[in-house]
């Protein structure tokens, strides 16, 4: 099996993570922000998988399954909050929600 080199894998993971972060920071729509978080989670999972492949250990894949589970839980809670937010504020703009500023 032609192995993907560790460097390339980690580079891809890093690029995905930064893309996700940029998306999180620049997007104002809460759905897109959740999707960006999802991308960042997957970038982290990718890094685990690549590292596991490099050392021939199963730990990386185990960690990825944990991340998938966690992401699923996060999405379910997140989507419920998004629905609540839409009901309360008639919109999905995250910047509109700043009642808790100091």
């Amino acid at each position: 099996m032609p192995a993907v080199s560790l460097e390339l894998g980690l580079l891809l993971a890093g690029v995905l993570f930064v893309l996700g972060l940029i998306g999180l920071l620049v997007r104002r729509n809460i759905i897109f922000m959740l999707m960006s978080v999802e991308i960042m989670l997957n970038a982290a999972g990718l890094a685990f998988v690549v590292a596991g492949a490099r050392w021939g250990q199963p730990d990386g894949q185990v960690m990825f399954i944990f991340i998938l589970t966690m992401a699923a839980a996060e999405v379910s809670a997140g989507l419920a909050l998004v629905l609540q937010m839409y009901h309360r504020f008639q919109g999905l703009d995250a910047d509109g929600l700043s009642e808790m500023r100091g």
Binding site: L21, L24, L25, R28, M33, A94, D95, L97, S98, E99, M100, R101, G102
Partner: peptide, 18 residues
């Protein structure tokens, strides 16, 4: 001055965490 950083904007907090 620390209170001023508490803007209530979630993106600002994400920026802080990053």
């Amino acid at each position: 001055s620390l209170t001023r950083t508490e803007t209530g904007h979630v993106r600002w907090y994400a920026m802080g965490v990053a």
